[in-house]
Amino acid sequence: MILLIDLCYREDSLSRDEFVGPVERLLRRSGAPFFTRHYTAVGAPELEAADAVILCGTALMDTGYTEHPELFRWLLSFERPVLGISSGMRALAAAFGASTEPCCEIGMANVEVLAPDPLFDGQEGFPAYQLHEYAVQVPDTFVSLAASDQCVQAIRHRSLPLYGFLFHPEARNEWILERFLGLVTPVTGRSG
């Protein structure tokens, strides 16, 4: 079961259909079982039930989630696959101690693959949809996987399947999300 986390300014907000809905539709099409929770409503039972987590993006002006870093500390000990999209990448990197720097990209930009990874296998680069005002400084425990001419676009933990994408794969690059789903191994009867 995949846990989809809504980072928008309010549960069931006007931004939900824009940033969570497209990912939900892709999961539905892929036949991947999932459930969605707002970031303020994620607790031990939700994390226990999750074989993987996707942290969705937010509107440019929507930075409320950054004011609650305590709600993302579970990422430090969650060893199953995680994908943070745009704001979700920021939340993931922040949990690992990374700071941000201004970097505004709005619209399509070319992304160049820098390091081999199963998610980008066979790709040297691709155009991707951007909607962000900040980029993250790569945490020490992560590697840079891809970059635009402005900033790092994809990171991965050095030893765990934790990914952050600054671009929005759900718009024009669904294939990357589908590859991420390939990393998810359903675990039944998980305990503690």
């Binding site: 931004s15 824009e18 809905g21 509107a59 002006m61 709005i106 399509m108 909607l131």
Partner: peptide, 24 residues
């Protein structure tokens, strides 16, 4: 993306939220 991007940029310049509830 042509239309959405342009509106997003203008909204950012004016410090306005931008909502696209039909996006994708």
């Amino acid at each position: 993306i042509y239309q959405a991007t342009r509106v997003q940029r203008v909204c950012r310049e004016l410090d306005l939220w931008c909502f696209n509830p039909l996006w994708n």
